[in-house]
Structure formats: structure tokens, C-alpha cells
Design a protein around this nucleic acid. Structure first.
Lengths: 201, 201
DNA sequence: CGTACTTTTGAATCGCATCAAATCTGGTGG
DNA sequence: CCACCAGATTTGATGCGATTCAAAAGTACG
């Protein structure tokens, strides 16, 4: 099993030493669930490799994607929640680390450096979520794509890290609409696509 | 909104004593700005009365609403950010408290109880934002309205706290579409409206 | 080499945006 | 108290863009 050393180091740097021994490595296959809506949070999950999405089934029956994660914590909001408000599902074979929630809470309560790092993480996540809100408020698919590249891309470049179908869910549109939006941007010369790499002109 | 303290007393309970003396009361008129995109955060703002919205101008020229706040902190994400990523504008006469950001950071670094309360607030806000994301992912206006009442309402009742026009922005649709969506739900007997009070059947 | 999935294109339909206009509302000043 | 005004609310007509359903081509994997 290939693990990602740099992300493991980031996790180790974030967590205080006392928690290192309590971390458990785990792996899941496609479509396995890390947790289910309604159940009580007992672990905090940190994705090392693969992909995990937070999903909810709307009352109409459709599935919407609330978060997509390749590296990092998934469902940080569950720290102070009695119940999960969504499902966590692996969309590909995934390696992750799970840490006892109670141990994290205790460590946060007496390790100021740890809680400071945790607050920083939450604040960053908050800003990212507000940007995603803004993106979903845009009407046209093309505008959402451009917004995605502008906010998530690095100096005009955006590397596709998942399937377009999954990305379409995250953008709140059908995959057909996303394909057509990309094609239209390419046709107008606003976007250059090289397989998985997107570039704004 | 459960996440934010809903009274001045709750603000006092959230903040450690050392910060109380540093709080400054202020008032602004309609359309005055608390902070501007690009400027450096120096204060944390806590709305007591009125309404403040976080807004950004999209590259197309439209204005989208990232957060709307009647009571509680606005722009908590700016705690660890070098620059504001949006504008804060009062949409009606507003009273608020401002607290020096640096003092908050210092207090968080040595007061475990304070940082614990702050983490709780951020985690709750995170979950609320994920729900809003889900709402914006719904295609039809009627579904967004129902989702709003189900997630923000209390036992089936939702009290409108602002204009429908402002709510429409928050739901990512035009105000005309919102009016029609409400009318359609009423016509189908799925929704009962009594002026500012909405109730699902 | 078959299977499952993603990617891509096509055609018809539906819902929202847009523009327009009328009514209603709260607040201001004469 | 009334006239007035700015903004919110509401209804109507039209066009556009996304959804939906369908089908074909490409791709990864055992």
C-alpha cells in the first residue's frame, strides 16, 4: 500500500504527540462508507489517499455533494455534533487515518497550540465554503467553471483531481451541462484544456 | 441560528473577561460598510441588532451574498486571513460590537476555555454552511424553499427575518422566481403563509 | 474480450432569468 | 392628515440555458 508521506507529516504536525499513538490506519474500497447520517461521531477521519465525499439525499431523492476530500479531514463539523448530518462515502479505494474523537476533544482543551492550529484549519475551511456558496449562486455553468478555476486554481491552472461527473455534482449541475459548458468555453477561446489540466486565457 | 450567541450576554459569556474592556460599541446606517475586500482585518465584528451581509462582486458584475447576519459574529473566517475576501455591508441601521483581532488571537492562545468555545462556534457554522451548500445545489426554487424551512425553521415554522428580496439573494435566485415559488407552494397546499410566518404542511 | 463506467453529442422540454409594469408599503415632508 | 417617494411585492410575456432522456463512443480493468 502506497501512502503519501507529505500528507502524513502534515497530520503529524497538526496533531499533538499524545494523539499519534491513538491514530489507526484504515483502507476502504469504492462505495464503502466511513460514517452514516444519524449515527454518533466517535472518530475524526483524515484522508491520506483516494477520495471521500460527504453526501445527503434530498427529500426529492436526488443526491447532493457537500464536501469532497482527497487529503485532509472530512467532516470537521462533527467535532461538536451529537449526530452526523450526512454520509461519508469513498468514491475510489481510499486510505485514511481515524482518531478517537474524545481524545481530540481532550487534547484541544489543554493544548493551546493544538487548538490554535485547529482554529486555523476551521477558519480556512469556512472561507473555502463561503467561496463555494458564491460559486453555486452563479447562474450559468460557464461562470461556475470560471469561478472554480479562479478560486481553486493556482496561477490560472487547475488540475482535475477527479472525474468530471463528480465535479459536476460539486458544481450543482448535471454532467452533461458541465461537458457542454467546458466545450463552449474552449470554443470561445476562454479556456484551454489539456486532458486533466485546465487553463484560463 | 444556534451557532452564534444570540444576545449581548452570550457575547460576554463567549469572550473572556480580559476582552470585555476592549469591546467598542458602534452603529452604522443603511449601506455603510464594516469592512472592504482586500483590506487587512483589524477587528472582529459582532452584530447586536440590524442586518449585515457579506457580499462579493462576481466577474460578470452581479452581486452575490455569502452570509447574512442579524445577531452574532460576521466574517469569523477572517481571524486567520491576511485580507478580507468580501465586503460587509449593513442592509439596515445596525448596532454592533468590534473587538481587536490581535487581542482575540492572544486570548485564544492562552485561554483553553475560550478557544474551546470558539471551536464550537466555528464547527457549528461549518455545518450550517454545508447545509446552505446543499440548498444551493437543489435545482428548483420550490425545493430550495422547502429545504430552507426544513433546516432553518423550528418545528415546521419559519419566521421571515428580512425582505423576500434579500432572501432571494441568499437562495441564489431572482426575487421574481422566489415570489412565484412561494405562490406555487401555497397554491399546491404545501405551504401556508401568514405574512412573515411560513409553515410546511 | 467483455463489462462497467465515463465522456460526449443530440433533441425535446421545463424552469428560471430577464424585462416590463402595476400595486402595495413604510416613511418623509408639506 | 395627506401627497409623495423609494423600495418591496406581485403578475405577465418572452427567451435562454439547464434538465431530461437517449444513444454512441471512449476508457479502465479484470
Amino acid at each position: 500500500m502506497i501512502s503519501n508521506p507529505s500528507t502524513l507529516k502534515e497530520l503529524a504536525d497538526l496533531l499533538p504527540d499524545s494523539l499519534h499513538a491513538l491514530c489507526k490506519h484504515r483502507s476502504v474500497l469504492v462505495n464503502e462508507q466511513l460514517f452514516r447520517i444519524g449515527s454518533m461521531p466517535k472518530w475524526m477521519f483524515y484522508v491520506i489517499q483516494g477520495e471521500v465525499v460527504l453526501e445527503r439525499v434530498s427529500h426529492g431523492g436526488g443526491v447532493s455533494c457537500l464536501q469532497r476530500c482527497h487529503v485532509g479531514f472530512i467532516g470537521e463539523g462533527s467535532l461538536t455534533s451529537m449526530r452526523y448530518h450526512c454520509n461519508a462515502r469513498a468514491t475510489r479505494p481510499t486510505d485514511f487515518v481515524q482518531i478517537p474523537l474524545q481524545a481530540i476533544k481532550e487534547a484541544l482543551s489543554f493544548d493551546p497550540n493544538f487548538s490554535s492550529r485547529w482554529i486555523h484549519m476551521l477558519s480556512t475551511e469556512l472561507r473555502a465554503l463561503r467561496l463555494q456558496n458564491e460559486r453555486l449562486s452563479l447562474q450559468r455553468v460557464q461562470d461556475r467553471i470560471i469561478h472554480l478555476l479562479q478560486t481553486e486554481g493556482k496561477n490560472g491552472r487547475y488540475e482535475l483531481s477527479t472525474s468530471l461527473k463528480q465535479l459536476a455534482r460539486e458544481l450543482g449541475v448535471t454532467h452533461e451541462a458541465l461537458y457542454r459548458g467546458i466545450a463552449a468555453l474552449e470554443a470561445n477561446g476562454k479556456l484551454i484544456r489539456d486532458d486533466r489540466l485546465f487553463r484560463l486565457t
